[in-house]
Each structure stands twice: as structure tokens, then as C-alpha cells.
Design a protein around this nucleic acid. Structure first.
Lengths: 164, 164
DNA sequence: TATTGTTATACTCTATAACTATA
DNA sequence: TATAGTTATAGAGTATAACAATA
């Protein structure tokens, strides 16, 4: 990690030293270089944008995908359990589930053992749809591989395994 | 950082098999494991929370820090240039600058060469304050090292260097 | 015509608090 | 009492569109 991030780009000579237009790639980041948080944030934005674009045809966003995947793998989970596992506020999960339920991808079933809670299940339609979402998500992962390299993606997953 | 994040927790025996309470760390993520986006997003949330906590005493958030750092390293930048460089919407930057200007950390100076634009500068007070913010930010980076290891943090920065 | 800074609107997400029905 | 789900609200943050001043 060196101190300067400035990629060289052709200097524009305008004849007016003071007013020269400065391109974004000429601007130094100074202390921001070497900040893991900044790099991770920019990378995360890139990843989400690619995910959203790749799954646009099915109108599924990253959080919706994570909710469906976890319920698919653990049928009968309560809303609290899903919220805790994914780090989503339970108040926010209510709305996420509302929209997924309206789209007939999952259903809330009254729990018999604890009548306060709902058991969450994918519908048959939801199971089928999720399989399609997963194929598109795999395509998205390949985009990441193309961007940073297969080995780097693997290494990244190893480094961050503790945060899942 | 091992492959499994599950901390073992005492199983709760209720005598009611069907209704047993499921702890968050018992829930499988299925397809989410192996998704770079999910791991990166969780990591990014952890980093931002630690940054906000570490710089709470000076009331500076990650985006504010990045704006001050870039202006400090490139005095006289226009709002458009800062917005482009950091990937912030120019409409959003207006409000960010408003609050930083109210706090006397920076000032907008009318550009003489292009009277549409403002040249951004730190105030003397802003320079001094930024030095303190940088010390706290460095402390935050050490937290990351403690969390994932020094070598892994370095490797991460290398992998993501292209996104800054 | 195009660009800079600004204002405004809508939608996503986070963070809380409070309410209800249960436990 | 405490918990699960819900509703509501406020503040970030993102995404747009439109406007005035200026290029």
C-alpha cells in the first residue's frame, strides 16, 4: 500500500493555470488510501450494483435474496430468527416479508406452539423462483471473479468468513 | 478466521421437539455462504459501526471523513470534483458541506475563474481537527487488524486497490 | 446548449419507540 | 414481566428531476 493513489492521466493544458479543470482520477485520496473501510465500501457498492443489475429481470434485490435463501434452507423459521441471523431490524423485515408474500414467493403460517410467532415457508412458486434467482446470483459471482480474479475472490471469502 | 462462524451455544431442551427455539447461530445460510457480496456487506457494516464508534467523540461519520480528507489533500477542489471522486451525488454533497461549513471545518470560496463553482478549503480549525480525526481513524484501522489480522488486512487492501 | 450548485421529491435502509397479543 | 410481530417516526443515504446562474 503506497502513499499515492494518483493514476497518471494526460494533463490538460488550458493556458490558464489557475482555472485548469481537474479530472476525478487526478485527485489524490491522501489518507483514504490505506483505509480498509473506504476500499471495502466502494467494493460493496460495486457488488450490489452488479447484483441488482444481474437480477433486475426478476426484480430481486440483495436483501430479498438473502431472506429467501435463508427461509428456503430453514423452513419454519420465525421472523425474529431470520432478522437476527441476517442482521435485519425486525421492524424492517415486516415490510420485506409483506412484499415477498404479496408476490406469492413465501407465506407466513401461524405457529401452533407459540401463537405470537409466524413460521416462514417458501411457496411452491417461491421454491421454483428461488432456483432461478440462484442461477442469476451465480452469474453475478462470476462477474466478481472476472473483476478481481478467481484466486482473489476465494481469498476474500476466507478472510471474511467470520462475518457471515 | 476459520470456515465456520458458528459459536457453539447450549442447546435448549424444552421437551417440545416441534417448538424448540432456534438460535441465530444454528441457522444455516445455505447458498449465502460463498456469496462474496454477503460477506463483504457484513464486513462493511462491521467496519462502519466501528468507525462511527471510534470517532463518536468528534462526531464524524465515514462520509464526512472522506470529504474532509480529500479536500485537505486537494485544496480548491470544486463540489463536482469531490462528488465525482468519492462517488457521492452532488445533490447529497450540498447537505454534507452545509453541515461541515456550519461547524467551521471548511469553507466555500467563490471561484474567480468559473463563477458557477465553489473552491473548497479547510479552515485553520478544520486542518487541526482533521489531524485529530486521522489519529482516531488510525486507531480504527488497528481494530480491523485485530479483527482479521495484519496480513489479511494488507491482502484485502491489495485485492480491492482497484476500487478506490 | 451544457455545467455548477441548489432545491425538492421519492424510495431504501437504519434506529427507535410504542402498541397488541400472546408467553 | 418479557417476547413476536406490527406500526409509526426520524435520520441517513441513493436516485432523479428541475431550476438559476454562468459557461
Amino acid at each position: 500500500m503506497t502513499a499515492s493513489a494518483a493514476q497518471t492521466s494526460p494533463r490538460k493544458r488550458t493556458g490558464n493555470g489557475a482555472a485548469r479543470r481537474i479530472d476525478a482520477d487526478e485527485i489524490g485520496l491522501d489518507g483514504l488510501i490505506g483505509h480498509a473501510g473506504y476500499a471495502v465500501r466502494r467494493f460493496q457498492i460495486w457488488i450490489f450494483q452488479d447484483f441488482i443489475k444481474t437480477l433486475r429481470e426478476v426484480d430481486i434485490r440483495p436483501t430479498q435474496y438473502s431472506v429467501l435463501t435463508v427461509i428456503g434452507a430453514n423452513p419454519g423459521l420465525s421472523q425474529m430468527a431470520v432478522a437476527k441471523r441476517l442482521g435485519i431490524e425486525r421492524a424492517r423485515l415486516v415490510h420485506l416479508l409483506d412484499s415477498l408474500e404479496e408476490r406469492k414467493l413465501l407465506k407466513r403460517v401461524k405457529s401452533k406452539s407459540d401463537r405470537r410467532s409466524h413460521a416462514l415457508h417458501l411457496t411452491a412458486q417461491g421454491e421454483t423462483a428461488l432456483a432461478g434467482f440462484k442461477r442469476l446470483a451465480a452469474e453475478h459471482e462470476r462477474h466478481i471473479e472476472e473483476k478481481i480474479g478467481k484466486a482473489n475472490r476465494e481469498r476474500l471469502l476466507q478472510i471474511l468468513a467470520g462475518f457471515t
